[in-house]
Amino acid sequence: MEVLACKGLRKVYGDLEVLKGIDFSINKGETKVIIGPSGSGKSTFLRIMGLLEPPTEGKVFFEGKDVYGENLNLNMIRAKIGFVFQDPSLFRHLTALENVKLGLKVVLKMSDEEATKKAMETLKLVRMDEWADYYPAQLSGGQQQRVGIARALAMDPDIILFDEPTASLDIELTWEVIDVMKDLARRGITMLVVTHEIGFAKEVADEIVLMDSGRIVESGPPEQMLKSPKTERAREFLGRLLGGV
């Protein structure tokens, strides 16, 4: 079943055309990885798919419904699309536990008791239950990011979008976050991930998507994309990414 899709997506900021017509779709249970050079529009694409910004042109579909075409309640759909940011963006005045609980209480209207139970279970999944009462400022970048994942995951979303969740972490912290994400992929959580952690893509992705200057240049299963890309641009980018020349 198709969870999230778009057709003819364009985004223009001033005179800068950042997305130049993107068609994309992801099915339930799939993990897709987006790669591409800086400034190619990956974050913009993800924000639009997360309904955090409207497209200039084109359509976004959530579970087959035209999000901006039909008169749908955007907040209700956003609640079903998790988002993990590069900078974890935890709510700074709340503890790890409270960060996870807030959406459960305010959006899903859970009681405090239910929310605490659900939040603690989810923190356990990302191995952060022992840090439940710490404030973001007291946690490492990797720990913050795992709480960020728990905050999105606890809402039981139909898909989670990740925008370079490890880009600002050093190598060991990257591993601890990537391990948690691999776990989620294996549990069948639908994930759309912008990352250049190729190990992650190799192990759990169903498809790698290469974006360049606002377009999807090429996409395919990891084995094929990594070994024998079809386009010159993909060969060049992947060659450099994998440490070739």
Binding site: L52, I77, R78, S89, L102
Partner: peptide, 27 residues
């Protein structure tokens, strides 16, 4: 207050008013 805080709140499905009430104003 960091602009991303509003985005994070909206991404959970909060309305803008809820985001102000629970995330932006306390900070």
């Amino acid at each position: 207050v960091d602009k991303q805080q509003m985005m994070a709140a909206l991404s959970l499905g909060m309305t803008k008013t809820e985001a102000f009430r629970y995330v932006i104003l306390p900070q």
